[in-house]
Design a protein around this nucleic acid. Structure first.
Lengths: 128, 128, 128, 128
DNA sequence: GTGGTCTAGACCACC
DNA sequence: GTGGTCTAGACCACG
């Protein structure tokens, strides 16, 4: 798994990394039980403070995406959201509306947008 | 045009409002030439610091979405994206990937996601 | 609202404080909309590093207990759990079993335990 | 006696095991004089570092719950809490308050909580 | 070796 | 003024 940080981005580093982990899992590049690089290791390779990496990991842990085994490392947790259906749907709809707003502003047509989404969908590991 | 601020959101108010203006335009609720409420007026109705409103407007102006006519007010600018096609596509794809990542993590299936997107699409004012 | 930290406790400071906030809310001593002391203020009064206070607040925010309004302060959020019923029940049962285990070890009878629980229950602000 | 370790728990393994021993005693599944598995044996079956098991046992021995007879094994000690009544009550009340705080935050009603506690109580071996 | 906690102090964004 | 992010570096707990 490859990580990259862009310090000139307005998005904080710890959240950039969290998003990359989430994306890798959603794409099936990381699956339950896989071990992630240790805090110190990733800290060295990315030249980022260990606390920042730790924050990424603890955030994802609280989200239920990772789990930590002190002394052993950090691992991908078993999937499955603990949130209620209404909450999950609300979150997704908000994100969809943001996407569609941007699509219209970027002057894409409905069909172009649909096609692009359909195309990207193949990259992800869907629940059946 | 109705505005609403959600102070419990981690998104700053000035960006929430900017997003709402963009969304209203994308939905066709605001079109080129429409006048927006003045900074003072909106500041009073939303109980928000005037500086915050001003920032929303100047940001959108810099983006080419709004146009200020001193002494007259703030207006929706004529559309016209100056970005090249590859840049626009790259932006949209990034957003799509973010959405799909979240959909997978929220345990939605591909069909559910597709259906929800299709449903929201009817709300927007698409370029033909 | 009074806070107290015990540095000789095995429980980390940031979690001691979080528990105190949760308890105050559960007892109705803090209710939705109430403002908590600012990070810097509480940091000064408790002689604890501001980062530690901030961690307490951000943890509770992620839990949905507090919400933060940058520039304004930290406030008690509206109640309501976003977790599914099975998850909530599992968490409560684990805690109940821990309690009953300790009650038996401390040589309390079933009636004594029941009575003590009944007695403490009156102190809390129950959902109806 | 069955042991299980949950590595995705933030509770350290040695304390999980200690808690399970205490729970088994509280439920009457282990009583004074019963022999526990040896450190090596348990270490193999649970795939856990022997040091971790040893720590569990020494902790419980210091607590007066177990008793090691060199060359023979580890045994459940005779009960008998040396703590005074006020100390024991204070401990239990703290735990009850923690439980009730969580129950309120998980949006359980007083009756639901009471019922759940009553239900679990039947599983334990109470002093009469 | 691993992660967890805490401190000190800097700089930025928001209001 | 408020909170948010990041760094640097210390010390502890766990396996």
């Amino acid at each position: 798994m490859e990580f990259a940080v862009n310090t000139s981005d307005r998005e904080p580093i710890y959240r950039q990394l969290a998003e990359q982990v989430r994306a890798a899992i959603a794409r099936g590049q990381l699956t339950a039980g896989d071990r992630l690089p240790s805090v110190r290791e990733l800290s060295r390779t990315l030249v980022v403070n260990p606390n920042t990496i730790a924050r990424t990991y603890t955030d994802l842990e609280r989200e239920g995406v990772l789990h930590t085994r002190p002394g052993l490392g950090v691992f991908v947790a078993a999937p499955g959201s603990e949130l209620t259906r209404p909450v999950r749907k609300k979150r997704l709809v908000e994100r969809i509306d943001g996407l569609l707003t941007e699509a219209v502003h970027l002057a894409f047509t409905r069909d172009e947008t649909r096609e692009l989404i359909e195309d990207r969908m193949t990259q992800f590991q869907w629940k059946t």
